[in-house]
Design a protein around this nucleic acid. Structure first.
Lengths: 193, 193
DNA sequence: AAATTCTCTTGATTTAAATCAATTAAAATT
DNA sequence: AATTTTAATTGATTTAAATCAAGAGAATTT
């Protein structure tokens, strides 16, 4: 159950065997079936979720009723609504499993306690955030400057696993494109080669 | 010289007077005149800069020669190329002062040492990153889903200080718009009221 | 103060992507 | 297996923003 999490931690910081065992006690294992949700829009996000197995997405519905895909997350990644989680505010996002998934959940309190008891866990969290920050910066640049075709090709290169695993209209939504546009972009690409 | 920095730290974590004094010794004060750069594209970003006074921007030039504004930063904010800073890679960004500015610089080594000697500084850094992550998430949503007019109005509401202080074509670049489009958007808004 | 450079505005035209609409294809449910 | 639902494709049309082009207004520099 904890393989992916331990791997993720050990890639970033050095922790003792005892710390790892202690660490386990803070997490709540949880299985989600496809289409089940971890967080409903309007609720307060009380969990930081690590994905041992499966794939999830977070999304929101705007005033006009359009759905916007905010994040995908697969094995070895974390997912939450950080804003809601940290400030106890009502989330505008829904977090949903796209396949049957196995999660390890960390409540706000458990996360705080873990960071206080194992300083290396705070470092681990900071390093994760640094990487997420860099990835988001790249996504901003992509969203502001690239054409539809460039966005799709670059996403495929950066995260081939996700593009293959997820319905096409969700990829379109993640890139800020309509499903029709993405369909045409894909056709154009395949005609070129 | 350290007023803004101390204010920023004390807003986020609790530190002793001694820790604050120790903290000072890790920073290198630096003044930049308008148009001078802290980082040149192609160089390795060796500083994490805190802004005591002034305003800076980071930007890059794409293959087609177009300039893209990545970030603004004013008093009380940090600026760096995190990717270059953390991985010692060559930066694609240039960081430049838009007004005469006063900075406090932290090298990679000084930052590591500071985090090891004052654990609350690591927490401070993590909290900064959390906020930056949330802000970037909002910027992604804006870039992917909002019209030019919405982008401009929302930026003005979120950061009135920046919109007033900076040339209009830089705001346009930050929002991923051409200067012509922003000019027309502003005209439309003023015609409405 | 004059000259130069930089910044913003306005108009005409083009273009990439969205929208609207219909059909086919695939997946899920009964 | 048949039916229903969901997803993807294709075509016609519209639209928001980009591009091209020129001129006006500010701000720096000499």
């Amino acid at each position: 159950m904890f393989q992916q999490l331990f791997k993720s931690i050990q890639e970033k910081v050095i922790v003792t065997h005892e710390e790892m065992e202690l660490c386990k006690t803070f997490f709540i294992p949880k299985k989600l079936r496809k289409k089940q949700t971890l967080l409903q829009e309007g609720d307060i996000c009380i969990y930081n979720a690590f994905i041992e197995k499966g794939i999830l997405r977070s999304f929101y519905i705007d005033e006009k009723g359009n759905e916007h895909l905010v994040q995908f997350a697969i094995e070895g990644w974390w997912i939450t609504d950080l804003s809601s989680f940290l400030t106890n505010s009502n989330s505008i996002y829904t977090i949903e499993a796209l396949e049957d998934s196995e999660l390890l959940l960390l409540t706000t309190a458990a996360r705080e306690a873990l960071m206080n008891q194992i300083p290396m866990f705070e470092r681990y969290q900071r390093l994760l955030l640094q990487n997420a920050y860099i990835a988001n910066q790249a996504r901003i640049n992509s969203a502001l400057t690239e054409t539809a075709e460039e966005k799709y090709i670059n996403l495929g290169n950066a995260y081939p696993g996700i593009v293959k695993r997820v319905p096409q209209h969700m990829i379109a939504s993640y890139l800020g494109l309509t499903p029709e546009t993405l369909s045409r972009v894909r056709k154009q690409i395949s005609n070129k080669s």
